[in-house]
């Protein structure tokens, strides 16, 4: 278990790089690693490849769990990638922003994770490869006090459980 959670953390660091490219707005998110441009030096089939070239996360509107067209586009790319690299299982983490109460946000995060999971399954990823977990508002990635941060925290992140790099 320890190995898995450390790996998840590593994947999240790459995710930070990806996010800077997508959302140049948030000053709080610093690029911690040079990702090699748009996947220039990224080895295909790695965790880094998944985060940088596919996109490991989708975002939600306030208090919503319906998938936006942008979210579906990201999930479509995840489906393609996961079908190509079938050695991976994933955990979809559902999250909420901090502008809600704790218990409700646990359920809202679960609803978001579940929406992403259901979409992946409907598009052909085996349900046995996907686990979900909700962190509610407990794991924000952006900490400023306006919607530029809250919108980054309303997310579902597909984490590779057994990625090597």
């Amino acid at each position: 278990m320890v190995g898995v959670s450390e790996m998840a953390r590593g994947v999240k660091m790459f995710a930070a790089v990806a996010m800077v490219m997508v959302l140049a707005a948030c000053a709080q998110t610093k690029p911690e690693l040079a990702g090699g441009g748009a996947g220039g030096n990224v080895t295909p089939g790695t965790g880094q490849d998944f985060v940088v070239n596919v996109g490991d996360r989708i975002y939600f509107e306030e208090d919503q769990s319906t998938l936006t067209s942008q979210a579906r586009a990201t999930l479509d790319k995840q489906v393609q990638w996961l079908n190509r690299y079938s050695q991976y299982t994933v955990t979809v983490e559902g999250h909420a922003d901090e502008r809600g109460t704790r218990q409700y946000n646990l359920a809202l995060g679960a609803r978001r994770g579940n929406a992403a999971r259901d979409y992946l399954v409907a598009q052909g990823v085996s349900a046995s490869r996907i686990k979900t977990i909700s962190y509610g508002k407990e794991r924000p990635v952006a900490v400023c006090n306006d919607d530029s941060c809250w919108s980054q925290n309303r997310r579902a992140v597909t984490v590779l459980n057994n990625a090597t790099n």
């Binding site: 769990s65 218990q103 646990l106 359920a107 679960a110 609803r111 579940n114 929406a115 259901d118 909700s134």
Partner: peptide, 8 residues
Amino acid sequence: SLQQGGNA
């Protein structure tokens, strides 16, 4: 509460 899919 028990979470079952999208419902609690």
